[in-house]
Amino acid sequence: MIIYRRLVRPVLFRSAGGDAEAVHERTLSMIELVGRSPQLRRLLRFAVGGRSQGAPVRVAGIDFPGRVGLAAGMDKDGRAVLAWSALGFGHAELGTVTARPQPGNDRPRLFRLPASGAVINRMGFNNRGAQALASRLTRDGVRRGNGAAGMPVGISIGKTKITPLEQATEDYLTSYRLLAPHADYLAINVSSPNTPGLRALQEAGALRDLLTAIRSAGRFRPVPIFVKVAPDLTEDALEELLGVCTECGVSGLIATNTTLDRSGLRYGDLQLAGQAGGLSGAPLTRRARAVVAFLAERTSLPVIGVGGIMTADDGQAMFDAGAALVQLYTGFIYAGPGLIAAINRATGDHALTSSRSQSRLQKGESA
Results as ranks from 00 to 15, higher is better:
T246G: 11
Q327P: 00
M318N: 09
A47V: 13
T138V: 07
R289W: 10
N127P: 00
L301D: 12
T212P: 01
N189T: 04
V190D: 05
T96C: 14
R208Y: 00
S15C: 08
E203C: 07
Q53T: 14
G66Q: 03
L70G: 10
I162H: 05
T285R: 12
P337Q: 04
T96R: 09
N194A: 12
R143L: 09
T96K: 12
R36I: 04
E235K: 14
L28T: 11
V153Y: 04
T212M: 07
K159Q: 06
I214M: 15
L201V: 09
V227L: 13
L137D: 05
V8I: 15
A92S: 14
A183K: 03
I309R: 12
G78M: 10
P65N: 07
D269P: 00
Q202F: 08
I254F: 01
L339I: 08
A255P: 00
T212W: 05
L325K: 00
T160M: 05
A324H: 10
T195H: 04
Q358M: 06
R345D: 14
E247Q: 12
A290G: 02
L339W: 03
R9I: 01
G18I: 11
A55R: 11
G17I: 13
F226C: 07
I254T: 02
L207D: 02
Q271A: 11
L211W: 00
R221L: 12
E297I: 04
V81T: 05
D320P: 03
R9N: 06
F46Q: 10
F226T: 10
D209T: 12
Y185A: 05
L87Q: 09
T163P: 01
Y185W: 10
R26S: 11
Q202S: 13
A296M: 01
L270W: 11
S357R: 01
E297V: 02
A86N: 11
S263L: 08
G315I: 03
K161F: 03
